[in-house]
């Protein structure tokens, strides 16, 4: 008998054995599957969001920094702004960054910007009076002011920004807000 024919028959035999082994293993798997019990349920989990934005008083919250151009500080020494909580959690604090630049050239020092909160009330833009309690938040030329006043979800803080500048070249102030995890309330454990 030719050697090629013998090899072919041997290969056919091996193929047959392989098919039988595979079929056997598959049948075992089906058998194990039959002896299985399962229980299934679904659940939805969502995470919180935190943050705040600075806008002009009563304006709709939009992302981005607020830029104010102080053009006539002698006549308008105040700017009224809101710190809006855009979180899904109550904020325990936030950090407001202030950056001031002169609009033109000159050697005059940069003015200081002071922030005051009208707690439980609103600022009257005409008189500059607070209908609630005035709380001093701090002042800076260029730097950060950490505010620890709690703000509920969708709440806002009524803030008055004032400048130390008298008559002089105009300047621009950029207000930014930042909220870290630690300012977004403590972690909680819920049972039930």
């Amino acid at each position: 008998m030719p050697i090629g024919g013998t090899l072919r028959r041997l290969l056919h035999l091996l193929l047959l054995v392989e098919v039988m082994v595979v079929a056997s293993v598959l049948s075992m798997g089906i058998a194990f599957g039959a002896g299985r019990g399962t229980a299934t349920a679904g659940q939805t989990v969502s995470s919180a969001r935190w943050g705040s934005v600075v806008v002009l008083q009563s304006q709709t919250a939009t992302s981005g920094a607020l830029v104010i151009d102080w053009t006539n500080v002698k006549k308008n020494p105040y700017q009224f702004i809101d710190l809006v909580n855009t979180s899904t959690v109550t904020l325990s604090g936030q950090t407001v960054s202030i950056s001031t630049t002169r609009n033109g050239s000159g050697n005059q020092p940069l003015p200081t910007i002071a922030l005051a909160l009208c707690r439980a009330g609103t600022w009257d833009q005409t008189t500059g009076a607070c209908s609630g309690t005035v709380v001093d938040l701090g002042s800076t030329t260029t730097g950060s002011i950490i505010i620890t006043e709690p703000v509920p979800v969708n709440g806002r803080l009524a803030v008055r920004a004032s400048t130390s500048a008298g008559v002089g070249s105009p300047f621009t102030t950029t207000f930014s807000s930042a909220v870290s995890r630690t300012q977004a309330g403590p972690a909680v454990v819920v049972n039930g």
Binding site: V45, G185, V188, V189, V190
Partner: peptide, 12 residues
């Protein structure tokens, strides 16, 4: 459902 989870939160 579990909603509004912040880092550090746990729900049992």
């Amino acid at each position: 459902s579990i909603t509004n989870m912040a880092p550090g939160d746990a729900v049992n």
